[in-house]
Design a protein around this nucleic acid. Structure first.
Length: 128
RNA sequence: GGAGUCGGCCCGACAGUCGCUCCGGUGUUAACUGCGCAGUUCUCAUGAGUACUGGGUGGUGCAUCGGGGAGGAAAGUCCGGGCUCCGCAGGGUAGAGCGCCAGGUAACGCCUGGGGGGUGUGAGCCCACGGAAAGUGCAACAGAAAGUAAACCGCCUAAGCAUGCCUCGGUAUGCCGGUAAGGGUGAAAGGGUGCGGUAAGAGCGCACCGCGCAGCUGGUAACAGUCUGCGGCACGGUAAACCCCGCUCGGAGCAAGACCAAAUAGGAACCCAAUGGUGCGACCCGUACCGGGUUCGGGUAGGUUGCUUGAGGUAUACGGUGACGUAUAUCCCAGAUGAAUGACUGUCCACGACAGAACCCGGCUUACAGGCUGGCUCCGAAU
């Protein structure tokens, strides 16, 4: 079971980001972060991160957030196939401990996966 | 041993699992692509072009192996340089910065050594440390007076004038005054101490100390001197007030700059179509609007580059008090770009601070848990 996290699993250009921001079909809100998502036409998910300096002031803390989110996403990528995801950090996220953040993200990935599958269901019925 | 002071170094350690990025090696052929070679076909003037096939070789990609992968401040962006583009004959002015002396350096507002002042018992530490006899200005409150000094209290009444008294020379009072020694005000009151001197005083005179100027000596210099002479003796403070003097300074920055280059709109050249097409209109006339293709240049998105071998690190030797320099040997030590350098688990301990490269260096400043180590000082004990 591959759990690599190469370039293909990231949102790379500003047009990639724009399409998710403009056409997001799923919004998951959390006290410390916000997840936007929409379907892509690929067999794997892609992740984009928006960690604003305004919300998390220290560069070291911003790096930590990015690493934790990437790591969590990397481990969950199998259940998120076909989704473009953007995670936005909110104020205060850097005050949490690593295990807490990992746990919170884990829960959000599961919610995201369920919600995405519900949205895909009617489409398949129409096709079949 | 305790207290202190000045440096140098380190930035949890080890193991396992799963990742990210760069470099190198090997392999891979499914994919994309660059460049030669050979054969065949077609076009035309023994050469060139077009298409296809075969094989070679490189790049991207994918596997796999090996190696590298944040800091002392990577930070603030406060100075100085390199690099890049733009500008530039020379000189002056304005503006900004710097400011004891000498040296180091690519350069500096940095560093080293020295001088001066302040501070500490000391090692040390601190200093925006040019000019106030070029000029202008400023100094609240208090105080009589704050800058060619000045009489509030005090001290004095010698000289001059007036008046009274008398032993006719004194004495008392007043006027005219004298006085910076004492008190008081103030951050600051125009050298200090002593003796002489005087009506009382006063550098008024003298001695010593201090000060200024000139010389001499030492020092590259700043500056220093039990040195010599002259001067009784100011030239108060403030230049992070204007100012004066000396020195330095073109502008913008890697989102610099260079290259490749879709789509869309517009431009240029050539070719083609032409007497056209569309609208108004039953039609003619009339009128308004409008081509197609190829190539080219500029150029947006996007990509490549700049991009890490450098005023480089380490070691040794030599020169120098030192900052540093020279020589030789040796090493390659992040290079990301929606932005890597990590996550988890276990063990151990002193339970881990401040904090993340973004073109690159040299500094300064600010933040900071601790650990290791060297020099020096003070105190105490022992020998």
């Amino acid at each position: 079971m591959k759990q690599a996290f190469g370039k293909s699993l990231r949102l790379l250009s500003s047009s990639d980001f724009k399409s998710v921001f403009d056409g997001a079909t799923i919004r998951l809100s959390h006290q410390y972060f916000l997840i936007l998502a929409r379907a892509n036409q690929l067999d794997h998910p892609r992740l984009g991160l928006v960690i604003a300096k305004k919300h998390i002031r220290l560069a070291v803390a911003r790096n930590r957030m990015k690493r934790l989110i990437r790591e969590s996403f990397r481990q969950q990528q199998q259940s998120l196939a076909g989704i473009d995801v953007i995670v936005l950090a909110r104020k205060g996220m850097d005050e949490l401990e690593n295990p807490v953040i990992a746990k919170q993200l884990q829960q959000q990935w599961q919610r995201l996966s369920r919600k995405f599958n519900q949205q895909q269901q009617p489409v398949r019925k129409e096709q079949g």
